[in-house]
Design a binder for these strands. Structure first.
Lengths: 192, 192
DNA sequence: ACAAAGTTAGTGAACATTAACTAACATGCA
DNA sequence: TGCATGTTAGTTAATGTTCACTAACTTTGT
């Protein structure tokens, strides 16, 4: 389990990355914002890499939660996908700091441990979505002329670019609202 | 115009970013690989930021070329889009070093000049593609029930994620070949 | 002979991390 | 109860490394 201080460190680390990119995440900045000295950070995490790992785990648990719950709750595949989008938009809108981390895999390129971890996350999410699509195809909800794997790439790719553009705009428009329209377009696109 | 040495510096800089991410691009690494000393770099570029700007310009010129030529050559919109994909795949396959830069906008977060530059590039490309789609809709080639802007996001997002996944896999499969299949899927998706 | 392109040697700043120490609090035992 | 011991979470000071960049000098090609 995480202590209060550990949670605080992760939260502030996300803030810093969100504000200034990965280069803004230094032990100095981290400690300054929390209000303790640099070495004190090492009472809670052994190294900076451990902090980054904790961030990845944090994100991983979060989406895994969303994905898995969505798999069970609704029964129509199209609704599942729509819900997935909506949940993500709401999530990002409430906590934009996560965004800067999630869509910046290059950030973790230094460490082989980190790159392996994030690779697996991406792969897993892709496979879960492909599975949902595949079920939808068997149910007769989703078109069959395009393989589930491609549809999953199309859906995820669209989501990612859309959110990224929102991030780049400085969050100037309403993500969940505009996202709703995009979800409708995607539904039309993949429906049988 | 660029001197031979300047071209070499940009090329090697791309290599380094490709291999180790932005943190791999240091004046030391750069000079070592070229085979000169660090201060010699400053005979050719005034600062590291100037090198990053040159990289962005390099990329900008490249895609602008591809996009603009494609706008004129073929007359069917669907073929234009297919060609655009194919060209990009071939381009990235031949020069994977570009990839690490193009899809890593966070890299440039330090400098406001750089972030403004890359924002404009992304926006411009999106608009060009949206325009192609829009023409295709008027011609009766592309479905009308989804707005051109959304279709452009869907197409670009798919392309980006697909290429990114290839990059993440360590270029283990054939990008142009697998890409061809994805292009077919997208064609089916947006055709009227 | 002169300018371009290189060198050596160094700068100060930032980086993650460690060492040594301390105050406050908790635990165990006579 | 009260002292001894240990733990937690912080401090100051310093380590070695890497960073981008500079001043001053040398080589090289026209």
């Amino acid at each position: 389990m995480q202590t209060e201080r550990q949670k605080e460190i992760i939260e502030v680390a996300l803030e810093l990355i969100s504000e200034k990119g990965i280069q803004g995440l230094t032990i100095k900045n981290l400690s300054k914002r929390i209000g303790i000295t640099e070495p004190a950070i090492y009472r809670h995490y052994d190294s900076k890499t451990d902090i980054l790992i904790a961030i990845l785990d944090h994100f991983n648990n979060n989406t895994e939660h969303i994905f898995k719950r969505e798999m069970q709750n609704v029964d129509k595949s199209l609704d599942k996908i729509a819900h997935l989008f909506t949940k993500h938009f709401a999530h990002f809108s409430a906590k934009p700091s996560l965004l800067a981390v999630i869509f910046s895999e290059e950030i973790f390129r230094n460490d082989p441990v980190l790159i392996d971890k994030i690779s697996k996350v991406i792969d897993k999410n892709h496979q879960i979505l492909a599975e949902i699509v595949s079920v939808g195809q068997k149910n007769g909800e989703i078109r069959l002329d395009i393989e589930a794997d491609h549809l999953s790439t199309i859906i995820t790719g669209t989501l990612r670019l859309f959110v990224k553009r929102w991030q780049f705009s400085g969050h100037t428009y309403n993500l969940p609202e505009e996202g709703k329209k995009l979800i409708e377009s995607i539904k039309h696109l993949i429906i049988k």
